[in-house]
Design a protein around this nucleic acid. Structure first.
Lengths: 331, 331
DNA sequence: ATGAAAGCGCTAACAG
DNA sequence: CTGTTAGCGCTTTCAT
């Protein structure tokens, strides 16, 4: 059994209060005694017990990052990986640790678990269910929504500017001379789906381009689904000369379908994606895509969460991270 | 402030011991009173406090998954993602939560942090430093090494069979008729590097093929580094007709270099990778690669860790997950 | 600058 | 099946 604060107190000859201070507020302790205490601690292989500490301070210095995406078999996908990475960095900076949870296969709502374990805050990414949000609220746990938005009072949401991202993609395709542009839309949350869809339609309208529903296709966001659809329309004489795909995975599937049919990308079919995930630079030709600043989103989400935890005032409850088009070789 | 066990006790008219039992060992409590207690709890919005519980049981029901890879800028790479996913699943199954930590930028050793926070166990992935291992040992924290191996008593290590994986790749290249085969070797940990290198050399020896050091190249495991090297040797008249690359990222870089030089893959240059990460199916032609059962590794690591936590006996301390070759279109 | 004592919310004997 | 009691290891007034 590990040494406790009492053991250190005894060995060093001080009281446990002083030992406690030597760790929690070192400046309130004479340097000399501090050193003696550390020495005793070392000799005993003592490490302060964060559980006991949390018990009285009511702060665990832990947060939970809960990803809730039904769409992907793999939750740790190229979109969330960089976000997670950024969140982890921010945690390190604040001396916090992060629980990660992927909530696609929850029988008992994971929220409950993290309420019991007394998180100081939570980041809810993706299609979080309303009940969880309410739960955390009821327990006054600071919370930020990531890649999702809900119109609730004082609910901090960090999203990408999906509408303008779609507009950027479409404007680019128009400039490249495309007049028949299809849409391959992943089955994402309504919030994201609608924003990107509306961006698509608005540019069509702006330039009086046709909205041909044969080439506006909902799809699972997998390479295979996209490949299959694109293969099926490649033979049509009036098929689009370009497709706007609402994420990179879909776009890559589209490119592969074209390549395998012997078409050249972008000459015979131009493709633009969304996300600028790492994958977009793997496919050849490399993918033109709408860049989402995933790092930034992760950093912001975490920073704002720590602001809430620290009791700092929040000005903006909806943070819409700007996107920008990255032109590579698929258009 | 949240309701405590005492509030529930008062409201329900039972003692706190009974309330405790109603949650910890429901069968030791009359169904009737149990229901009353749950009702009271619900009315008070009570949730058992896991911190207080951990304080006395000495079990947090938390583990830490610490990834330590200096090689990658992004630690959550396509290799570790599926492993992490599997670990998370296993945690769910056991009612545990997992801290994730990426230890590339640690000022104060993260090990300390997790010792303070009293993990029930830790999984150390990648190039873990010896000090951390010793630390966890000293505090009797169950531990498993993942994708790494160290010759320490009673240290459970889960690895892929890197040697035989390399042999499989090389045998395949030989069967395909290649006689000049280069090696593009990522700067991984010695354990992994050596195993794959030895596999390469052993097949060369077996068939009396030349070991031409001009075409045995160490490289950072990035697409760019691989691209650059391959581009530089493509003009040589006696260059290899195939390369064995010690991970997929490198292999993809190699393919891209060949494609951009106007060569056909595999006709003009054959490439085989290692890992069978998701990326291997993004590049066209899709990559022939050595499959590592990353899910399996994650599951095993977690299962064994829980075995240790539960005090179950461990028979094998070195688990070497078999690999197999996945033949796609790059060879 | 340091010590004494109370208590955080829960579990685990031990009784009954 | 239920209640009583004594802590778990630490922080935090309040004194000194």
């Amino acid at each position: 059994m590990p040494a406790t604060i009492i053991d250190v107190a005894k060995l060093s000859g001080y009281s446990k209060a002083t030992v406690s201070r030597a760790y929690a507020s070192p400046d309130c302790v004479k340097p000399e005694t501090r050193e003696k205490i550390y020495a005793a601690a070392k000799a005993l292989n003592y490490a302060p017990n964060a559980i006991a500490r949390a018990m009285v301070t009511k702060q665990t210095e832990n947060i939970a990052f809960i990803i809730h995406e039904k769409q992907y078999p793999v939750v740790l996908n190229p979109f969330y990986s960089p976000i997670l990475e950024a969140v982890l960095q921010e945690c390190n900076r604040h001396g916090y640790s992060a629980f990660i949870s992927t909530d696609h296969d929850v029988r008992l709502p994971n929220g409950e678990l993290y309420i019991k374990k007394h998180m100081d805050g939570v980041i809810l990414a993706g299609q979080t269910d309303y009940q969880s949000i309410l739960s955390f609220r009821k327990h006054n746990i600071p919370m930020v929504l990531l890649n999702n938005r809900m119109e609730l009072d004082d609910l901090l949401c960090v999203t990408a500017d999906n509408y303008n991202g779609a507009v950027q993609a479409m404007e680019h395709l128009y400039e490249r001379g495309h007049r028949r542009i299809g849409l391959l839309a992943g089955a994402f949350s309504p919030e994201i789906y609608n924003a990107r869809y509306n961006g698509y339609v608005s540019v069509l309208k702006k330039y009086d381009l046709p909205l041909d529903m044969r080439f506006v296709q909902d799809t699972e966001p997998t390479m295979e689904a996209a490949e299959q659809y694109i293969s099926s329309i490649l033979g049509m004489p009036d098929r689009p000369t370009a497709f706007f795909c609402t994420n990179d995975t879909i776009a890559i599937g589209a490119i592969k379908a074209a390549l395998r049919a012997g078409l050249r990308v972008p000459q015979d079919l131009a493709i633009v994606g969304f996300d600028d995930s790492d994958n977009s630079r793997i496919i050849e030709p490399e993918l033109t895509t709408v860049h989402i600043d995933k790092q930034q989103m992760g950093h912001l989400a975490a920073q704002k969460l720590f602001d809430m935890i620290d009791g700092n005032p929040i000005e903006e409850y909806w943070i819409n991270t700007p996107t920008r088009l990255i032109i590579r070789s698929s258009t």
